[in-house]
């Protein structure tokens, strides 16, 4: 199920060495988003590379959701440069939407549709041909072991299965980037890890994974982590680098030092 060849060396190498400049999929430069007088995103600048797992952390209300909406082409920034999957964040929002996938804990699948109907629906809205949808549906059901429940309503499935299916559906159209907004909230620890196995696999295929989470151990699974505090990016580095800089044993320590020091 997992192809073992051509696995990139993930951990130690710096992102630039690993992925190379040509492989930048998200470029954000001096991005600002204001709502009236309130500055939700204050001068954000970062790059995310192809196949990278990019953790996007921050306290509630730090401006994560606003930033993700902008990156997904759902909201226009007030100022700053923005390129997503090679498209301009101001003009090509429709093209951006086609080249990304999105999944959140709150909304992912239609509860009153069956497994197969959900897959078909998402395949359809991303313009995958009927034949191709059938092939991918079959593959997906086999891979997730959902054969026995494929005609059951999502409602009746355990949360863990749902979240795994939701993730698979979000990358069904092979997007360049997939945004995961707290994808593992409330899921049991074993399923949570199976979920991350899937994330690794997708990243290994070259899909960039942009993920937010409240589980600090999950932050350590990321190649790089950015931490937002009060609308600004307060730190951006590999988990190792962050722990060294802030003299902490784990990401929770880093997060507490940063987010509390306001």
């Amino acid at each position: 199920m997992i192809q073992k060849k051509d696995i990139p060396v993930i951990a130690k190498a710096s992102p630039m060495e690993r992925f190379g400049e040509a492989n930048v999929v998200i470029t954000v430069k001096n991005l600002v988003k204001k709502f009236g007088d309130f500055v939700a995103n204050d001068d954000l600048s970062f790059e995310v590379y192809k196949g990278e797992i990019f953790g996007f952390l921050g306290a509630n209300g730090a401006g994560k959701t606003t930033a993700i909406r902008i990156l997904c082409g759902l909201s226009k920034p007030t100022s700053g440069e923005l390129t997503i999957a090679g498209f301009d964040g101001y003009i090509d929002t429709e093209k951006i939407k086609k080249s990304i996938g999105y999944m959140s804990q709150k909304f992912s699948l239609y509860e009153d549709l069956t497994v197969v109907e959900n897959i078909r629906f998402y395949g359809g809205i991303y313009g995958i041909s009927g034949k191709e949808i059938r092939i991918r549906t079959e593959k997906l059901i086999e891979k997730l072991n959902l054969e026995s429940v494929k005609d059951k309503l999502i409602k009746g499935l355990p949360l863990g299965w749902r979240q795994k299916l939701a993730f698979s559906v979000a990358i069904l159209h092979e997007p360049k980037i997939v945004f995961l907004d707290e994808p593992t909230g409330g899921v049991d620890p074993i399923t949570r890890r199976q979920f991350w196995d899937m994330i690794y696999e997708a990243a290994n295929r070259g899909i960039t994974v942009f993920v937010t989470t409240h589980y600090m151990d999950e932050a350590e699974y990321c190649n790089r982590v950015s931490i937002m505090v009060d609308g600004k990016i307060a730190a951006l580095d590999t988990p190792d680098g962050l722990m060294k800089t802030f003299g902490a044993n784990n990401m929770e320590g880093v997060f507490l030092k940063l987010a509390r020091g306001k």
Binding site: I2, K4, I7, A11, D197, D217, Y221
Partner: peptide, 21 residues
Amino acid sequence: YQMMLDLKDWNQTETAYLFGQ
């Protein structure tokens, strides 16, 4: 990632779960 794959493949492995780094 490579380690994850290799350990899951290993016949001596009972359980292998990601935990941070």
